[in-house]
Deep mutational scan, measured.
Amino acid sequence: VTLFVALYDYEARTEDDLSAHKGEKFQILNSSEGDWWEARSLTTGETGYIPSNYVAPV
Protein backbone atom coordinates (compact mmCIF):
# COMPACT_ATOMS: atom_id res chain seq x y z
CA VAL A 1 0.00 0.00 0.00
CA THR A 2 1.39 3.37 -1.05
CA LEU A 3 0.35 6.02 1.49
CA PHE A 4 0.66 9.75 1.00
CA VAL A 5 -0.39 12.75 3.09
CA ALA A 6 -1.86 16.01 1.76
CA LEU A 7 0.48 18.98 2.18
CA TYR A 8 -2.20 21.53 1.26
CA ASP A 9 -5.96 21.83 0.96
CA TYR A 10 -7.31 21.12 -2.53
CA GLU A 11 -10.88 21.84 -3.68
CA ALA A 12 -12.14 19.44 -6.38
CA ARG A 13 -12.83 21.27 -9.65
CA THR A 14 -14.44 18.41 -11.60
CA GLU A 15 -16.48 15.36 -10.63
CA ASP A 16 -13.39 13.18 -11.23
CA ASP A 17 -11.27 15.18 -8.77
CA LEU A 18 -11.01 14.39 -5.08
CA SER A 19 -10.96 17.21 -2.51
CA ALA A 20 -8.13 16.99 0.00
CA HIS A 21 -7.51 18.59 3.37
CA LYS A 22 -4.02 19.27 4.72
CA GLY A 23 -2.92 16.26 6.79
CA GLU A 24 -5.43 13.86 5.20
CA LYS A 25 -3.96 10.48 4.21
CA PHE A 26 -4.47 8.81 0.85
CA GLN A 27 -3.80 5.43 -0.71
CA ILE A 28 -2.42 5.98 -4.22
CA LEU A 29 -4.21 3.67 -6.67
CA ASN A 30 -2.58 4.84 -9.91
CA SER A 31 0.35 7.24 -10.31
CA SER A 32 1.00 6.59 -14.01
CA GLU A 33 -1.21 9.46 -15.24
CA GLY A 34 1.47 12.14 -14.90
CA ASP A 35 0.70 15.04 -12.57
CA TRP A 36 -2.72 13.72 -11.49
CA TRP A 37 -2.87 10.58 -9.37
CA GLU A 38 -5.88 8.39 -8.67
CA ALA A 39 -6.22 8.10 -4.91
CA ARG A 40 -8.55 6.88 -2.18
CA SER A 41 -9.04 8.97 0.94
CA LEU A 42 -8.46 6.98 4.12
CA THR A 43 -10.81 9.45 5.87
CA THR A 44 -13.85 9.37 3.56
CA GLY A 45 -13.21 6.25 1.45
CA GLU A 46 -13.91 8.30 -1.69
CA THR A 47 -11.74 7.91 -4.78
CA GLY A 48 -10.72 10.44 -7.41
CA TYR A 49 -7.81 12.37 -8.85
CA ILE A 50 -5.54 14.62 -6.80
CA PRO A 51 -2.59 16.77 -7.95
CA SER A 52 0.60 14.85 -7.21
CA ASN A 53 2.46 17.99 -6.09
CA TYR A 54 -0.05 18.43 -3.23
CA VAL A 55 0.94 15.16 -1.49
CA ALA A 56 4.08 13.58 -0.01
CA PRO A 57 4.96 10.03 1.11
CA VAL A 58 4.05 9.19 4.71
Rank of each mutant, 00 (worst) to 15 (best):
E33H: 14
G48A: 00
W36T: 06
E38F: 15
K22L: 06
L42W: 05
P51A: 05
W37Y: 10
V55H: 00
A6S: 05
V1I: 12
W37R: 02
V5F: 10
G45E: 04
D17I: 08
K22C: 10
A20L: 15
P57I: 08
F26E: 01
P57K: 07
L18H: 02
Y10M: 04
D9F: 06
K25L: 15
T47F: 07
P51W: 08
L3G: 05
Q27Y: 14
P57R: 07
Y10A: 02
G34N: 11
E15T: 12
N53W: 15
A12R: 08
A56F: 08
T2M: 12
V5A: 04
Y54Q: 08
E46Y: 08
G34V: 11
P51N: 10
T44I: 01
L3R: 04
Y10D: 02
H21P: 01
D17Q: 15
N53K: 13
T47S: 09
V1P: 13
G48P: 00
G48Y: 05
G48E: 00
L42R: 02
L18G: 01
W36I: 10
W37G: 00
S52V: 07
G45Y: 06
S41N: 10
T43P: 02
V55P: 01
G34P: 14
N30K: 08
I50E: 01
N30R: 07
N30G: 09
N30W: 07
L18N: 01
L42Y: 05
L29W: 05
W37S: 02
T47D: 02
R40V: 10
G34S: 13
K22G: 03
R40F: 07
S32P: 10
G45S: 05
D16Y: 15
D9A: 06
D9S: 06
W37L: 10
Y8A: 09
N30A: 08
K22P: 05
A6G: 03
T2H: 12
A12D: 02
E38A: 07
T2P: 14
A56N: 04
Y54D: 02
R13A: 11
G23R: 00
G48V: 04
S31R: 13
L29H: 04
V5R: 01
A20E: 00
P51Y: 08
D9P: 06
S31D: 12
S52Q: 07
V55E: 02
E38N: 07
D9V: 04
N53E: 10
L3N: 06
E38C: 15
A39Q: 00
H21D: 05
Y10G: 00
D35C: 14
R40K: 12
D16C: 15
D35T: 09
D9E: 07
L18Q: 01
T43I: 10
L3K: 05
I50F: 03
E38V: 15
S41P: 00
S52D: 03
T44L: 01
K22Y: 05
E38K: 13
D35G: 12
D16M: 14
G34D: 12
E15K: 13
A6F: 08
S19T: 10
L7A: 03
L29M: 07
F26N: 01
G45P: 00
N53Y: 12
G23Y: 04
Y8L: 09
V55I: 13
V5I: 12
A56T: 11
Y8H: 08
L7C: 12
P51T: 02
K25C: 14
Y10P: 01
F26S: 00
E15I: 11
T44F: 01
L7S: 01
P57M: 09
F4M: 10
V55M: 13
S52E: 03
S52K: 14
